[in-house]
Design a protein around this nucleic acid. Structure first.
Length: 103
DNA sequence: TGTTTGACGGACA
DNA sequence: CTGTCCGCCAAAC
């Protein structure tokens, strides 16, 4: 897996990072932004995810906020997909200690 | 061109 | 632990 292509569009870089998050692991918006070479652009990551085409194969569900919370406008769908990968939530939160992706 | 918005983050009480 | 507040920044108004 090659590093991030700094030349491409922000969304392309975010896609590349998403594809690196392993099954059963999660990453925060800020983490994705940083890995995409855009520190301090966590909100931009959120916007890009919100614009993903329906039916995309990207693992957008593996992105949560820094507190382990789902901030997706449709939490039920994301929750289902996370549980499908063996990620369990406690009090509506993902344990980053357990499931946090460490590249 | 100024203001508001948002799938955020971190500091602080 | 939770809630509040402020910084951040591109897009939409």
């Amino acid at each position: 897996m090659s590093p991030i292509d700094e030349n491409k569009k922000p969304e392309t870089r975010v896609y590349q990072v998403l594809n690196q998050i392993p099954r059963g692991k999660v990453a925060s918006y800020g983490q994705v932004a940083a890995l995409a070479g855009m520190p301090s652009h966590s909100r931009l990551v959120g916007r890009i995810l919100s614009n993903l085409p329906r039916g995309t194969r990207l693992p957008w569900h593996r992105v949560i906020n820094s507190q382990g919370r789902i901030t997706n406008p449709d939490p039920a769908r994301q929750l289902a997909r996370l549980e499908e990968e063996g990620i369990t939530l406690i009090d509506g939160r993902v344990s980053l200690k357990t499931y946090g992706w460490q590249p």
